[in-house]
């Protein structure tokens, strides 16, 4: 499957609209996920990420617009080449772990015998060999989630779609999942995942879409997103006032004895000269490249950013 010719874009959506009653969950979205890339969809809860993914995967039909999955306008026809981990995890509680993985593969066309063999091997490699024959109801939440993840990739798909894959995992397992995603991408698999934890997207993604209010507010590389903001300067001075203050940009903020402002368009040298000439007494000066989080705040707004940080535990784990 990996060696099969791939279209330029693994996933495409044009003018997608999906409404539930009066609520426009997806409001005219255009998206194109390059084949073989790791692509992140960022947005706070309720931004429309899940509806967007479900629409692209063909679980629900859009009210307007058209979509294409691996070059096919009927997404279910590509089911064999796609793996999907939904946000709401679900497994049959009485099914054994290896059977659950094989069943999910069988749904997507993998012969059951091969699925069982692969499932056992995947679980063993992951250190879960002893749990392979246990029913799902006897596994911990994290283990069950891992079983479902293996079920998503057991048939060796060309495209993996993961909806909030890091949600509910501890830091150790989040790290393992990141390794797995990178490994899949190395094999040429396109990975599309949604998250409300920016750190994951920042570390993993080549391209991101920032979604808020059912619309894509930004689409591009992580660097593109960061480059939308000028680098931030942090300056500490011994002098609190003087002629040198005129060299600071108008949007400068003073916080805890530190001046914060975006790097002036003219660069750092004129500013430095003015500070030295004005005897500002530079104690420290740093220029920081903005993070994806800063870009997200600038693009989606403060309110969306606050929502993104609604789960401090996950942020911390990430």
């Amino acid at each position: 499957m990996i060696g099969a010719p791939q279209p330029t874009y693994a996933v495409e959506g044009h003018g997608l609209v999906k409404t539930f009653g009066d609520f426009r969950a997806v409001d005219g979205i255009d998206v194109a996920v390059p084949a073989g890339s790791i692509y992140g969809i960022l947005g706070p809860n309720g931004a429309g990420k899940t509806t967007m993914l479900r629409t692209l995967l063909g679980i629900i039909d859009p009210d307007e617009g058209h979509r294409s999955l691996l070059g096919d306008s009927a997404p279910l026809r590509q089911a064999r080449n796609v793996g999907y981990l939904p946000e709401e995890r679900g497994l049959y509680p009485s099914m054994k772990a290896f059977e659950a993985v094989a069943f999910m593969g069988a749904l997507r066309g993998l012969p059951l015998k091969i699925g069982r063999e692969r499932a056992r091997s995947m679980l063993a490699d992951y250190g879960m060999g002893a749990s392979a024959d246990k029913p799902i109801r006897q596994l911990s939440k994290g283990m069950a989630q891992t079983v479902q993840l293996f079920g998503t990739i057991v048939h060796e798909p060309r495209l993996i779609v993961l909806d909030e894959p890091f949600s509910g995992l501890d830091a150790f397992n989040q790290g393992k999942l990141e390794v797995l995603i990178r490994d899949q991408a190395r094999r040429g698999v396109t990975v599309l995942f949604s998250t409300h934890v920016i750190a994951h997207a920042e570390r993993l993604c080549e391209r991101v879409a920032i979604v808020a209010g059912g619309r894509i507010r930004f689409e591009g590389t992580v660097d593109d997103a960061r480059n939308r903001l000028r680098p931030q300067v942090r300056l500490r001075t011994r002098a609190s006032d003087g002629g040198w203050r005129r060299a600071l940009p108008a949007e400068t903020l003073a916080q805890d004895g530190t001046w914060h402002f975006p790097l002036p368009l003219g660069g750092i040298e004129p500013l430095l000269r003015a500070l030295l000439d004005g005897n500002a007494g530079i104690e420290s000066l740093s220029i920081e490249r903005p993070g994806l989080h800063d870009a997200f705040v600038a693009i989606a707004g403060e309110a969306a950013a606050r929502q993104m940080q609604g789960d401090p535990q996950e942020e911390e784990a990430a």
Binding site: R54, A79, V82, Y84, P86, E88, G90, M104, L107, Q148
Partner: peptide, 9 residues
């Protein structure tokens, strides 16, 4: 919550 896995596949 298995229905979504089935409906997607």
């Amino acid at each position: 919550k298995i229905i979504e896995i089935l409906a997607a596949a």
